[in-house]
């Protein structure tokens, strides 16, 4: 049968930062072809295609079931595969090899994680489930 793509609206302007991305302006209507787990969605806008940050998109017709998983306060063990220095005060600074507990997997690719007593955002792209090969 025909593939029915989900339609989203851009909530803000987004400028491309790398080759395979797609620039959008607030109000643009895009079709989402694929959603990566790390917050990048492959979209189609007229005749252009490319990756757009999920954080910049909102559903046109609110989906019946919530897209985002509920938080898991027990935490899921993940290993840091790429270090990152916090840019905003609600983010964490962590080094490669450290382990963290993932509490909430958000669609925009910034997950809520806990390290000892501190909780904050960290890019899901820089983490890997403990015990899994990359």
């Amino acid at each position: 049968g025909p593939i029915i793509l989900q339609t989203y609206r851009a909530i803000a302007d987004y400028e491309k930062n790398s080759k395979n991305e797609l620039a959008v302006s607030a109000g643009d209507i895009v079709d989402v072809v694929e959603k990566s787990e790390h917050g990048w969605w492959f979209c189609q806008l007229k005749n252009k295609r490319g990756w757009v940050p999920a954080a910049y998109l909102e559903p046109i017709d609110s989906p019946d079931e919530p897209e985002e998983a509920d938080p898991n306060y027990e935490g899921e063990l993940y290993i840091i595969i790429t270090g990152y220095t916090a840019d905003q005060d609600d983010e964490l600074t962590l080094k490669e090899g450290e382990s963290v507990e993932v509490i909430h997997k958000l669609l925009d690719g910034w997950w809520v994680v806990r390290k000892d007593e501190t909780t904050g955002y960290y890019p899901s792209m820089y983490m890997q489930k403990s015990g899994e090969k990359s």
Binding site: S18, Y84, D108
Partner: peptide, 20 residues
Amino acid sequence: TIKRPPENPPPRPPPEARKK
């Protein structure tokens, strides 16, 4: 064809998203 996703993480949500 779906191109390779960017290597860097996406930006944090824009202010417009946080107003919600």
